[in-house]
Structures are given as structure tokens and as C-alpha cells.
Amino acid sequence: MTNPFEDPDGRYLALINAEGQYSLWPAFVAVPDGWGVAHPEDSRDACLAHIDRHWTDMRPRSLAEAMEEHAPESR
């Protein structure tokens, strides 16, 4: 059996968590607690493309917000 995360012919979901982090997820596996569906069941390539388009900042949301809160003001 191949790795279900690497099956080019498999069906996948793009998931997102509260920190704005994404995950490619096999459609036949239940969505884990703390994650929601950001892109419905689709091909692996389509889900990866969705993740590439939307996950532009790899920092967890809480870290990005804390960094912005403590950033010096632009003058």
C-alpha cells in the first residue's frame, strides 16, 4: 500500500486549523478535531494548489498577530 498522502490518484481535502495552518488530507480519513475543510474533496493537485494560493504566511496566526502588535510604528 502506498502512503495515502502521496497517492497522485487519490481524493483529498485541504484542511485549515485555528492558527491558519493548512494540511493536505486524504478524503477517506475523518477530519481531525481542531481542523476544518478549506477546500472540498478534489484531486491532490487541486488541493495543493489551493494551499499554495492561500497559505502565504507560514507563521501560526497567533505568532503573526503578536509580532504585528509589537512591531515598531512606521514613521
Rank of each mutant, 00 (worst) to 15 (best):
R61E: 11
E65C: 03
A30L: 08
I51R: 13
A30T: 13
L13G: 08
S62A: 12
A64W: 01
I51L: 08
C47N: 10
P60I: 07
S74R: 15
E73M: 14
L63Q: 07
V29W: 10
R59P: 12
G36H: 11
S43L: 10
E6A: 14
M67S: 07
N17K: 02
D52F: 05
Q21K: 06
R59I: 05
P26Y: 01
D42A: 13
A27P: 02
H70P: 10
D42S: 14
F28R: 08
M67W: 14
S74G: 06
P40A: 15
R53N: 13
M67G: 06
R44G: 04
R59V: 11
P8Q: 00
A18H: 07
P60F: 15
D42M: 02
M67H: 10
A71N: 13
A46R: 01
D33V: 09
D9H: 13
H39Y: 13
G10M: 04
P8S: 00
G10K: 05
D42R: 10
A49S: 08
W55E: 03
L15D: 07
M58C: 08
G20D: 04
N17Y: 09
F28I: 01
S43Y: 06
A38W: 01
S74Q: 09
D57Y: 09
E65G: 00
S23H: 07
Q21S: 06
H50K: 02
H39E: 12
V29N: 07
R44M: 15
V37W: 02
A27I: 06
S23G: 03
H70E: 12
G36K: 10
A64Y: 01
V29C: 01
F5Q: 01
Y12V: 03
D52W: 08
C47I: 03
P40M: 06
V37G: 07
G10N: 01
D7I: 13
L13D: 07
P40V: 09
A38H: 03
A49D: 15
M67T: 02
G20K: 04
A38I: 01
E68N: 13
E19R: 11
S62W: 02
A14Q: 05
G10V: 01
S23F: 08
F28A: 11
D7S: 06
W55N: 12
H70I: 12
L63W: 02
E65S: 03
L63S: 10
D7T: 11
S62Y: 07
H39M: 00
L48V: 01
D7P: 00
D42T: 12
V29R: 05
A46S: 12
A30E: 15
G34L: 09
P72N: 10
P32C: 14
E41L: 03
P60W: 14
M58D: 15
I51M: 14
P26R: 02
E69Q: 15
A18W: 06
H50Q: 02
I16L: 05
R44P: 14
H39V: 00
